[in-house]
Simulated scan of single mutants.
Amino acid sequence: EFVHQPCDFRQVGLHRTAGYILGVDLAEAPPRIALADDSRPIAEPFVCIAVQSTTQSKYWNNPDGWRDVVDYLKQTGYRVVCIDQKRVHGRGRGWTYIPQGAEDETGDRPLQERARWLKHAAAFIGLSSGLSWLAWAVGTPVVLISGFTHPSNEFTTPYRVINYHACNSCWNDVRLRFDHTDFFWCPRHKDTPRQFECTRLITSDQVKAMLQRIPGLQAGCAPAVTGSVHAVPCETRPRSASKPSANGGMATGVTVSAGELMDRARVHIAQGDRDAQQGDLVNALKNYREGSAIMRRLSEADNRNAGFQRDLSVVRNRIGAALLAQGDLQGAIEEHRSSLAIMERLTAENPDNIEFRRDLAWCNARIAEVLRAQGRAVDRLASGPAAPAITNRPETR
């Protein structure tokens, strides 16, 4: 009835519901966690997984998924540790066991111990459940597999896995009400061949592709352990600047500290996008600038990394768009021109990279937009092979 809850949790996400109830800032930020025992539980590099949940719709229902991913990680050089509470869980005709090949650290363990394992893990793979939130809280990259929830339901992670080509997001459908008493709740396709297709049709290849995006966690590049920090032996391996990774140009093969910084930048930029969509340009600019500062720091530390440079260009365009919406035309054009300068340099160095050429055209289009707002004539802003503009790209690329 929204007596105490002013916004429907299915539309705003569970963690933001408290903010709406209390009338406080809704910006998403992980807590700061201090552990009584902060030591590394095992010396070798490892990945934590959790496969159990409270209802079948939350599970990864692909029958071969966990086994394939565990095999892949072990071949890559990681130990795989399952930290669920229960080794076996289910009801009726559906039971889920710890995946073959995973090391068993299940049981009734203190939450502090779970956080300790997660903090030192190279990554965590889980579901829309509490251990994913705990992994996010301690700063570990989270590969979150879920189909019955929409990504807005959980914290922001660049490694979210969902199949939009299957039925999805029933939990966040305001027309549906979750039945806590039905372990096999599937409101749209129960008892049909499509039941639980939201996760059954998420493939192990999709999950592996997300793992490959995590800085330092790559096939054939398992990290060595130096103290409590992962040092990446293949970090000096040359990386083609003309082929940025699929994740918005974010580079792989960098140190874990750089990966943490990139994740932090992504969080700020994603929050800036949400602020902008809600019309809060002040906070949008604040988040964009914090993300930009991080990307500038990474770019200056590794000026040969095309991924860092491109991501800096992208966020500067976002700042320019927000300034234009505020009416600061001079500030907007300065940001867009700075972004253009980056892309001109990257395009000159990588003339065959179509993504860079598109980005260059996008920068030109943004400058043209500001010039029109200033009432100035718009000439051809680019020449040569990069001139044809591709301007129908969404503002939040």
Rank of each mutant, 00 (worst) to 15 (best):
G249Q: 00
G249N: 05
M250N: 03
M250Y: 04
A251W: 14
T252Y: 00
G253D: 07
T255D: 08
T255H: 02
S257Y: 03
S257W: 07
A258C: 13
A258G: 11
A258V: 09
G259Q: 12
G259M: 09
G259E: 11
E260H: 08
E260W: 00
E260T: 04
L261P: 05
M262P: 08
R264K: 08
A265M: 11
H268I: 14
H268A: 14
I269F: 11
I269L: 12
A270I: 06
Q271I: 10
G272Y: 06
R274L: 13
Q277N: 09
Q277V: 06
G279N: 09
G279R: 07
A284F: 15
L285T: 08
L285E: 14
K286A: 11
N287A: 00
E290H: 05
E290L: 02
S292I: 00
I294Y: 05
I294A: 01
I294Q: 07
M295I: 09
L298E: 15
S299D: 14
A301P: 13
D302P: 05
N303P: 02
R304T: 15
A306Q: 11
A306N: 12
A306W: 09
Q309M: 01
Q309E: 12
R310F: 15
L312C: 12
S313Y: 04
S313L: 00
S313K: 03
S313R: 01
S313Q: 05
V314K: 01
V315S: 07
N317Y: 12
I319V: 15
A322C: 03
L323E: 12
L323F: 11
L324F: 13
Q326S: 15
Q326D: 15
Q326K: 15
G331A: 12
A332H: 08
A332F: 11
I333T: 14
E335C: 03
H336T: 05
R337N: 01
R337I: 05
S339P: 04
A341P: 11
A341S: 02
I342N: 07
I342D: 10
E344G: 00
E344S: 01
R345C: 10
R345P: 09
L346I: 02
T347H: 12
T347E: 14
A348T: 13
N350F: 02
N350H: 00
N350E: 06
P351Y: 03
P351F: 01
D352F: 13
F356D: 06
F356Y: 04
F356G: 07
R358T: 10
W362A: 03
W362Y: 10
W362F: 08
W362K: 07
W362V: 11
C363I: 04
C363S: 07
N364K: 04
A365R: 10
A365H: 13
R366N: 09
E369K: 14
V370K: 04
V370R: 02
R372D: 08
Q374V: 02
G375I: 11
G375S: 11
A377K: 06
A377L: 07
D379K: 00
D379H: 06
R380P: 07
L381S: 09
A382D: 00
A382L: 10
A382Q: 10
S383E: 08
P385L: 10
A386I: 07
